[in-house]
Amino acid sequence: MAFCDRLKNLRDEKGLSQVELAKILNISRQSVGNYENGLRFPNDEKLIIKIADYFNVSIDYLFGKTNIRNFNIIIKEDEETYCKKNSALENLFYELDKLSPETIKKITYTIKLFNKKNTD
């Protein structure tokens, strides 16, 4: 999915009009319309970051490089453990992104069973 489609879908999910999003991003409504119609692309790095931050998605997601919205997972552990887990989770998400939704559902179910067994 292209940037223009992602931006429109994200705006629609929030229930925002183009005018409202333009005010939030401090740009014109016409710019939002041009981005969503694929006529233009934001060339300002700060604006791209602002869009990603507002919608809580990664830039890779905005650009259509991944279907994973955000890799930022908060893990409340010491910094070394956090870095190791964060790296491992990013690798896992990268691999999961290649799978079908049905396969991901099966893996999620298996993980839930595994966690339940470990807590019993």
Rank of each mutant, 00 (worst) to 15 (best):
E95L: 12
R6V: 05
E36C: 02
R11L: 04
S58K: 06
L39N: 14
I104S: 05
L25N: 00
L47F: 08
Q30E: 13
R6C: 02
L39T: 11
L21S: 01
K117M: 14
I27L: 02
I59H: 06
D12N: 10
G15W: 07
K117L: 08
K76H: 06
N67G: 06
K76S: 04
F114T: 13
I48T: 00
C4K: 04
Y61F: 12
L47Y: 07
V19H: 11
T103F: 11
S58H: 11
E77D: 15
T103M: 12
E77W: 06
G15H: 10
E79M: 05
Y109P: 00
C4H: 11
K106H: 05
K98C: 04
D120T: 08
S100H: 13
F55L: 00
L16T: 06
D53T: 06
P42G: 08
A2I: 14
Y94I: 11
F71P: 03
K105R: 15
G33S: 10
G64Y: 09
E80Q: 13
E20K: 07
E77I: 09
R29E: 15
Q18S: 06
L92R: 02
Y35P: 03
G64M: 10
T66A: 00
K76V: 01
N56T: 02
Y54E: 01
I51W: 00
L7H: 02
Y61R: 00
Y61I: 07
K112M: 12
S28R: 04
N91K: 14
K112R: 13
C83D: 13
L47E: 03
Y82K: 10
E90V: 15
E20S: 05
N37Q: 13
K117H: 14
F93L: 15
Y82T: 10
E95Y: 08
L113M: 08
N37P: 03
N86K: 12
D60F: 00
P101S: 03
L47H: 03
A2E: 15
K112L: 12
L39H: 11
T110Q: 12
F3A: 03
L62N: 05
T103I: 15
K65Q: 01
K46D: 11
L99W: 13
K98V: 08
Q30G: 07
E77Q: 14
N115M: 14
R69V: 06
Y35T: 08
I48Y: 00
A2L: 14
Y94P: 00
K23G: 04
T110C: 08
N72L: 09
K65M: 01
